[in-house]
Design a protein around this nucleic acid. Structure first.
Lengths: 103, 103
DNA sequence: CAAAGTACTTTGTATTTCAAAGTAAATATA
DNA sequence: TATATTTACTTTGAAATACAAAGTACTTTG
């Protein structure tokens, strides 16, 4: 039983927006909705659904509070999310055996 | 005008099957349908549509011939595909500040 | 107080993915 | 020799996904 050449890519992470969200949250530990919207360059609706998916998977946590009188959603990564992110990166590497080649 | 933190991921490549196909074709220069099916661990129908997409984008070339009496589809990567693959990897790196290491 | 803005969420549509079924020819079986 | 099975794909329809327009619930501004 030879091991698979290509490791499967976690579908929860394999999306540009969700990958970007996790990348931010690994770097900063906490980010609000608007910050994530700017970083990921997506629309409100799109970000909202992607965040919901990440939360549902237990990869991030969302805290709803208020900044002054306005609602504020703050996201942070959970252990499960960190692990999944690492595994995703590891899986990705199986698709790039040579590492980085110049274009 | 500060550059985007995250570079966009080419949607033609951002699919597990198509990424695997390109990865194979970069390594071996030519691969037939069945070999790709084995490597990518997907179904006939699925592979067929993914290959069509890659060909349509000008990333790969498909040659139809015969091996003995049976049809044989042979795929190879084109320059445009190589470039796109490199750019995809480069874009990916923007999501992993720590870097993607060769396996 | 009406109009515009903020911070989201919900919803409908468009796109994408995927595998079941279809096709066509070759080969094995009875 | 009929027929069933296999091989090598492609087409098609259904399910999942992505996306943004519209909706909600406020707040701020003119």
């Amino acid at each position: 039983m030879t091991p698979d050449r290509f490791e499967p890519l976690d579908p929860v992470i394999h999306s540009q927006v969700r990958l970007a969200v996790l990348s931010v949250l690994i770097a900063v530990k906490e980010a609000d909705f608007n910050y994530l919207k700017k970083e990921t360059e997506t629309t409100d609706g799109n970000l909202s659904t992607h965040l919901a998916k990440l939360e549902e998977a237990g990869y991030i946590r969302m805290k709803k509070s208020f900044r002054g009188k306005k609602p504020l959603t703050t996201c942070s990564i959970m252990e499960k999310g960190k692990t999944a992110f690492s595994l995703y990166l590891k899986a990705l590497e199986s698709y790039f055996p040579g590492g980085i080649k110049p274009v």
